[in-house]
Each structure stands twice: as structure tokens, then as C-alpha cells.
């Protein structure tokens, strides 16, 4: 790598700080008491975290969010990978049409499917359940499209070599295609996880029981905690926000090293 131009390095640092500043500010704020914050005094307290977790049930919401986002990610990636493998490697009647339909779903705003999904789940009796939160999110047209494109870049000779070695279709997928698609699959997993983590509308619609609230719903409710005083308890909201963004940050750090690595090198001369 070239040595960095010091001016560019300084500029990058400043831009980075600029992006980070609201996050840092809110984390800082989450350690103040409301009174001190509005009075302009600087203190340090864990009180807001205690209240968010104890009084306002955020531990529960965190678990719900982890369950829902985790399962949506695992199931969504599974479905997308299987479908992508089929679209990338097999010609079958209606295949092109089905792939076209999959791509077409990318152009449908999610809000349009909100009511149909609600009615379907209501009929199935799945409102106010984890299944109701998870099922509509596991078919992901974008992930399928993205993985299919990536898999088409893997030389078909590798599949054929595996078939000659005695592999079944699923063994080819699991032993050859999936390991070689790891960068794409990790990216998609992260993308699905974050999208589901931040999903607000669907949990709002599909769930009424407080026990099933996800973090986003819980967070939104916090704004209405102190309506009488006319003031929002910002330090409390910021503590809850910090609880909300932390898992995403950790998740990103966990998969980041898989994201950009090219693995196909050396497969075919």
C-alpha cells in the first residue's frame, strides 16, 4: 500500500469523527441523569440503564429482537441460498419466470404487502406470535438475487468435479458452493440481520402483546413515558438506544472479516 498523504489522513479522521459524533454524544448522554442533563451539569450514572432494563422491560425486548432477527437471518439465508443455487445452476421449466418474479419483488415497496400479509397471518392465527414476526421476512428477493449472481461467478467445473467425485446436489451446494460464497453469504446475513433489527412497521402491526415487543417498538414507546411534564427523558431514551445499537455493532465486528475476502483464487488457472 502507498503511504497515506497526511492531509488525506487528517481529512478522513475529521469526516469519521463527524459521522461518529451523534453516536458518541448519545452514549455520553445516556450516562447523565435527566435533571443534570437539563441543568447542564456533567455527572455519571448507570441509573438510565437500570430503568430501561428493569422498569421498562428492555431486557425482554432485547431477547425478542435477538430471537426474531437471528431466526429471520438464519432462515432467510437458508431459503435464499437454496433458491440461488437452483437459479444459478439448473435449468428447469418456469425457472426464468420464477427468477424474474423474484427480481420483480425488489421493485415492490414493502408497505404494499403490509395489509395482505396482515390478513394472511390473521387468518392463520399467527398474529401476536414469534412466527408472525418471523415468517413474512424470510423470503428475501434481494438476497436471492445477490447470491445467485455471486454463485454464477463460481466456475461450474468445480461442481462437475464434485459430481464426478460422487457428490449429490446438496453436497455440491454445502461442500463447494457455500464455502466459496462465504463473502457474499456473510454480507447478506449482515444485511438481513440489520434490516430486521431495524424493522419497525411490521412488528408494530403484527404484535400487540408487550411480551413480544422488539427493541424498536419499545424504543418508540419510551417517547411517551413522560407526557405530563412536556419533556422527553432523553438520557433514558439514549440508554435504550445504546442497548439497541450495541448488538448490531458486535454482529458487524463478528462477520466483518469474512466480508471482503475473495476465495475463488486458484480454483481454475
Amino acid at each position: 500500500m502507498k503511504p497515506e498523504n497526511p492531509f488525506v489522513a487528517l481529512l478522513s479522521l475529521l469526516v469519521g469523527l463527524l459521522f461518529l459524533s451523534p453516536v458518541l454524544y448519545s452514549i455520553w448522554m445516556s450516562f447523565q441523569t435527566a435533571d443534570d442533563f437539563y441543568a447542564g451539569r456533567v455527572t455519571f450514572t448507570l441509573d438510565n440503564y437500570e430503568r430501561a432494563i428493569g422498569q421498562f422491560n428492555f431486557a425482554r425486548y432485547l431477547i425478542n429482537s435477538l430471537i426474531v432477527s437471528g431466526l429471520v437471518t438464519v432462515l432467510g439465508i437458508t431459503v435464499a441460498t437454496l433458491a440461488a443455487f437452483a437459479f444459478a445452476r439448473f435449468r428447469f421449466p418456469g425457472g426464468d419466470l420464477m427468477f424474474g418474479a423474484t427480481v420483480a419483488t425488489l421493485m415492490i415497496p414493502s408497505h404494499i404487502s403490509l395489509i395482505p400479509n396482515y390478513l394472511t397471518l390473521a387468518k392463520a392465527g399467527l398474529l401476536d406470535t414469534y412466527a408472525g414476526l418471523i415468517l413474512p421476512a424470510i423470503s428475501n428477493g434481494f438476497a436471492c438475487f445477490f447470491l445467485r449472481q455471486y454463485m454464477r461467478g463460481i466456475p461450474k467445473a468445480l461442481d462437475e468435479a464434485a459430481y464426478m467425485d460422487g457428490a449429490t446436489h446438496l453436497q455440491v451446494l454445502w461442500r463447494i458452493i457455500v464455502p466459496l460464497s462465504r463473502p457474499a453469504i456473510s454480507s447478506m446475513a449482515l444485511y438481513i440481520f440489520i434490516a430486521e433489527w431495524n424493522n419497525y412497521i411490521w412488528p408494530l402491526v403484527a404484535v400487540g402483546k408487550q411480551d413480544l415487543y422488539t427493541l424498536q417498538i419499545g424504543l418508540a414507546r419510551l417517547y411517551r413515558i413522560n407526557p405530563g411534564e412536556g419533556l422527553i427523558d432523553w438520557p433514558l431514551v439514549m440508554a435504550a438506544s445504546t442497548i439497541t445499537i450495541l448488538p448490531v455493532l458486535l454482529g458487524f465486528l463478528a462477520v466483518e472479516r469474512h466480508l471482503v475476502r475473495g476465495i475463488t483464487m486458484g480454483a481454475v488457472k
Binding site: 462437475e160 468435479a161 463447494i176 480454483a267 481454475v268 488457472k269
Partner: peptide, 8 residues
Amino acid sequence: FQNYALYP
């Protein structure tokens, strides 16, 4: 195979 197709 001509290009060997080794599993990378």
C-alpha cells in the same frame, strides 16, 4: 479437467 478444477 483441463483447468484442473481443484477445490480452492
